[in-house]
């Protein structure tokens, strides 16, 4: 391995420096937050005042506008974590660690929300809060995986070491999630041959799609905003740790 004395100042290198990353991405936060707020307000308005009740599900279809985006995020956040884990393991990118750590609690929160709205949607349509249906069950398992990863982060004192170990576990989880999904689907069809009512009808009228799309983007942008903010906090927290360590060493000497 050769040691470059003057690193190239590509955008990649700039992003690799935590301080530079914060400077470069800080201007994005406010516009993203405003965009999120506008989209959320618009989405809620559409969801309640400008969309019809579904002819089959009635007004409960309105729960979909918060359920689908959170369920999407529960998987998208894990994908973000898995890509960041690759960044940690393959390129040793310092911001990948930070991104991985910031995403885990967000993913857990969105997964919990997806389960909550799913239960509230299931009560009127299936007649029960909890159905051991393939999707709900695998979402529950996802929540456990997220919480395990958060617990693993907290178990380490040294965050750099934690990042590499958590990255390995995140990738192991990423390999396993499709297997878990498959097995849970197999299991739930085994136990209930008459398939429960499923919401993914092939034809959705545009009047339902509009609020769904708006909410979808609102939640995705919300995740992006929170992720950036949490990453900045994490960078600062590492700086605090370094300073504290230096202060402790100074006092000891």
């Amino acid at each position: 391995m050769s040691i470059e004395t003057s690193p190239k100042q590509s955008w990649w290198n700039r992003l690799a420096h935590p301080g530079q990353f914060v400077i470069w991405t800080r201007p994005f936060i406010l516009p993203l937050a405003i965009l999120t707020a506008v989209l959320l307000a618009l989405g809620v308005w559409f969801a309640f005042f400008n969309s019809p009740a579904d002819y089959q599900m009635g007004d409960t279809v309105r729960i979909m506008y918060v359920h689908v985006p959170t369920a999407w995020l529960s998987q998208f956040v894990y994908a973000t974590m898995a890509v960041s884990a690759l960044g940690t393991l393959v390129w040793r990118h310092p911001m990948a660690d930070v991104s991985m750590k910031a995403a885990a609690p967000l993913g857990a929160a969105f997964t919990a929300m997806a389960l909550f709205t799913g239960a509230l949607w299931g009560r009127p349509t299936w007649g029960t809060f909890w159905e051991w249906d393939g999707r709900m069950t695998s979402t529950l398992v996802m929540l456990f995986i997220y919480l395990g990863i958060v617990a693993l982060w907290r178990a380490f004192d040294d965050q750099l070491r934690a990042a590499r170990v958590v990255a390995i576990f995140t990738l192991v989880g990423a390999v396993n999630i499709p297997i878990i999904k498959f097995s849970v689907d197999w299991w739930s069809t085994l136990h209930q041959p008459s398939s429960v009512f499923r919401a993914d009808g092939p034809t959705m009228p545009g009047s339902i799609l509009t609020p769904l799309f708006i909410m979808f983007f609102a939640f995705t942008f919300l995740f992006a905003t929170l992720q950036l903010l949490a990453m900045h906090t994490e960078v600062k927290r590492r700086r605090v740790m370094t300073l504290e360590r230096r202060a402790a060493r100074g006092e000891a000497a």
Binding site: V44, G58, D59, T60, I63, L120, P124, L226, A230
Partner: peptide, 30 residues
């Protein structure tokens, strides 16, 4: 909202309470 109004309202209340908690926790931490 029809006969299932309470479920719809609780779903939105729950999600927005969650979002509020998430945002305020992130800001507080920052």
């Amino acid at each position: 909202l029809g006969q299932h109004a309470q479920f719809i309202i609780w779903a939105y209340v729950g999600v927005f309470a969650g979002l509020l908690a998430l945002v305020s926790w992130t800001l507080l931490d920052a």
